[in-house]
Write a protein that binds this DNA or RNA. Structure first.
Lengths: 204, 204
DNA sequence: CGATTTAAAGACCAATTGGTCTATAATATC
DNA sequence: GATATTATAGACCAATTGGTCTTTAAATCG
């Protein structure tokens, strides 16, 4: 199948730590503390890297942050692609998608918040690299939800007068708002009931 | 009417700057840059105070921030009390309330964001004083919206099966989500159309 | 082995952080 | 005019910021 890569191996000591694992640990810190709230020692502790290794591997704090953000976004989109898989019943998919948000916005999960929303509020206005990522994520999310709604409509499962594209925009705003209100750690029941009441307005 | 206050005036040079104006200017800085992103020199420039005066008047950065946040919250609640005034048609009030969010979440206004949402994401999880304020604001907002919806229901203006209290929670999440998505500076039309589509599901 | 590359530890850096303090001028009351 | 209070400017502070560099030990190759 694939030919042997013609690049010769590097000569010296190979990298001994897992870069992706380091990005993931860094992501966890940014997630909990925000960009400005995260100091270098926090990142060194979390990644268990020395200053030198971290800078050699990632360049600087900002670049590492972008990688962590990209990772967070990729995880979220992957999750959505599973939940809203076209081979599944679209309404079931939407329920699963919203159930995920109920989970992530109640109690301790809610209090921890969302790296994406926090970053949108903290940096999107000032940092163009971040702003582009945030905007493209919202677009991607909206497209996936609109697609699921569109399939639900074809199946005759949408309430009268519901249009997939505007309903998708509503749902995106709603779930991101859930993440904001989730910072006050509401009870699971509350979030679930709110989601159910919303879906009731759109699903037949 | 009111008797002369028996307190004798202080003896020395009176305060010559307007503390409320200073809080308002500080609020503007925190609003644009966030808590961690705001450095003391930023606050001195905005308030046109010297270090000494600022610390004498407000104690420290955190206390000044809390005053700015309280001011922002008070302004928001005052606005809502006008928009959702019980003497007004409740549906008109709700439309005015949402129109305000359309305005604040489109274009440049949207890009600037919201001090409250940014603070919720940045600090509510870690800072108890902030967390309490955020939680109580959401509660107060939800109560006002629920009240308006309740009056709309009595007037027969709500769609079948809409329950004021859960609908209020939906609306609160939705508008806070609008603020998040608004950081990508969407077109006014887009936000307005989304709001209209949502209201369509709740109003007869 | 020798050459090469990397990791870790930590010294080191200038700039910035939030915060205090002092000196001086201004403005008020008695 | 004496007393008291305040504002400003700026020196000053220790701690922390993000970031670089050097040293030494490891690990891999030819």
């Amino acid at each position: 199948m694939s030919r042997q890569t013609p690049v010769q191996l590097p000569r010296g000591r190979p990298r001994s730590f897992d870069m992706e694992a380091a990005v993931e640990r860094a992501m966890g810190v940014f997630w909990s503390r925000g960009y400005h709230g995260t100091a270098l020692p926090d990142l060194l502790r979390a990644t268990k890297l020395s200053r030198g290794s971290l800078y050699a591997a990632f360049g600087d704090k900002h670049s590492l942050f972008l990688r962590a953000l990209d990772r967070y976004i990729a995880d979220a989109l992957t999750r959505m692609d599973i939940e809203l898989d076209p081979r599944r019943e679209p309404v079931d998919g939407l329920r699963a998608y919203l159930a995920g948000y109920v989970d992530r916005t109640s109690g301790a999960n809610g209090r921890r918040g969302c790296l994406l929303v926090a970053t949108a509020m903290e940096l999107a206005g000032q940092d163009a690299e971040v702003g582009r990522r945030i905007a493209s994520f919202f677009k991607a999310m909206e497209a996936r939800v609109a697609d699921a709604l569109s399939r639900a409509k074809t199946a005759g499962k949408l309430a009268d007068g519901v249009e997939p594209s505007s309903a998708a925009r509503i749902l995106v705003c709603f779930v991101e708002g859930l993440r904001v209100v989730g910072k006050t750690a509401p009870a699971r029941n509350t979030s679930q009931a709110t989601v159910d009441a919303l879906l009731d307005r759109f699903i037949r």
